Simulated scan of single mutants.
Amino acid sequence: MIRIFSALLIAIAISITPLTWHYGKLYFEPTQPEQVAPRDDTALRAEIDALRNHVSELQTRIDGLDARLSLGLRSDAKDDVAASEGIAPASDSLKDSFAKVVLIADRRNANNGLTVASPSFLSNLLGLPRENLTDDCEQATNPKLAALLKTEDVGPIQARMLEPALISLRQVFANVQVFEPELYTRIKSAGSLCVRRIRGSASSASAHAYGLALDINIDGVLDSLDDGKTQLGLILLADFFKKEGWIWGAGFRREDSMHFEVSREKLQQWRRLGEI
């Protein structure tokens, strides 16, 4: 009897195996994902750009806080001691230190990730600003370039530059105003557009000649060229400029830390977008 019962169970198992396999596939196989229509690339790029801008703003704020802490310009412990001795605690503001001249740490790596737009690159991209360049600032005669030049307030200063550079510069200073408002009020211009050749060159035009460079300082005090030092405020500003795709002159072989110019990468982006 037991053998018969066992054989019966085996027979039943064999007979229902196909059914088990069929319905098992129906209930346990992963369903095929629904076909989703491809997203609009324009909308997707806009979302990505918005996220990148948000991350950039957060990183700028972090960098500003890091600069404050690393410079040791705020000490709650010192304030406690001063208060116990009847002395007014020191301010945690940097407003009295922005114009202070300090050494530039690791300046040759200041522009890592960005590339200087060489005179030949600029010439190929935009053409020479004018045919006959001299050492003096003159008018741009290149029609395409001249049409893009504008004079506008970009926040704390006025500048004459290419229109996309002005838009970018306005964003730089908007970030500075949010995260370093005291520094923002002390920014001064030392010049922007100057259609001339590079000093010592026979025909190469400088970035200033294309309206792609700006010289700035704190409190109207010009920085000394090629001494490896600069104003503290310019060191803080350099991070804001770099995040917007600008080169800092402190990283040049001949240090020029009051100088900021648009990077090659930023220019290529503008060309792709049809802005230049």
Score class of each variant (00 low, 15 high):
Tyr27Ile: 10
Leu8Ile: 09
Ile218Lys: 01
Met258Phe: 08
Glu163Asn: 13
Gln177Ser: 14
Ala159Trp: 02
Ala165Ile: 11
Arg160Leu: 10
Leu126Pro: 01
Asn132Ile: 11
Arg271Leu: 08
Gly72Glu: 03
Pro181Met: 13
Ala209Thr: 01
Ala43Glu: 08
Glu47Pro: 01
Val102Cys: 09
Gly228Cys: 06
Ser204Thr: 05
Pro129Asn: 06
Arg68Lys: 07
Thr42Cys: 04
Pro119Ser: 11
Arg197Gln: 00
Leu9Tyr: 04
His54Gly: 12
Ile198Gly: 04
Leu133Trp: 07
Lys25Leu: 10
Ser192Pro: 02
Glu57Leu: 13
Glu265Arg: 07
Ala238Glu: 07
Ala207Asp: 04
Met1Trp: 11
Val221Lys: 03
Gln171Trp: 11
Val81His: 05
Thr20Asn: 12
Ala37Pro: 02
Ser70Phe: 05
Ala117Cys: 10
Glu255Leu: 13
Pro89Phe: 02
Gly155Thr: 12
Leu26Gln: 09
Ala117Trp: 15
Pro30Val: 11
Glu244Leu: 15
Val262Arg: 09
Phe173Tyr: 14
Trp21Tyr: 11
Ala13Gly: 08
Pro129Met: 04
Ala11Ile: 08
His22Trp: 05
Ala99Phe: 01
Gln32Asp: 11
Pro18Tyr: 02
Leu225Val: 08
Met258Glu: 13
Ala82Lys: 04
Asp79Gly: 02
Glu138Phe: 06
Arg199Phe: 08
Ile198Phe: 03
Arg130Thr: 11
Leu44Cys: 02
Ile16Pro: 06
Pro18Arg: 00
Leu237Trp: 01
Leu149Trp: 09
Arg271Glu: 13
Ser6Glu: 10
Leu183Gly: 03
Ala165Met: 10
Arg196Val: 05
Trp248Val: 12
Ser97Thr: 00
Leu169Asp: 09
Leu128Arg: 06
Gln35Ala: 12
Val154Cys: 12
Leu128Asp: 05
Arg272Ile: 10
Phe121Glu: 14
Phe98Gln: 01
Phe240Arg: 07
Lys150His: 15
Asp239Leu: 10
Trp246His: 13
Ile167His: 11
Gln59Glu: 14
Cys194Gly: 05
Ser120Phe: 09
Ala83Val: 07
Glu255Pro: 09
Leu122Pro: 04
Leu149Cys: 08
Ala209His: 00
Trp246Thr: 13
Ala37Thr: 12
Val172Gln: 07
Arg130Met: 00
Ala77Pro: 03
Gly220Phe: 02
Tyr184Leu: 02
Glu138Ser: 14
Ala88Phe: 01
Ala105Met: 01
Lys229Tyr: 09
His208Cys: 04
Glu57Trp: 09
Glu265Gln: 15
Arg68Leu: 02
Ile87Glu: 01
Ile187Ala: 07
Lys229Ala: 06
Val55Trp: 04
Trp21Gly: 04
Asn112His: 11
Leu69Ser: 00
Ser123Met: 10
Ala146Phe: 09
Arg253Glu: 13
Asp41Pro: 07
Ser123Ile: 06
His208Ala: 08
Arg272Val: 10
Thr134Ile: 09
Leu126Val: 06
Arg253Ser: 13
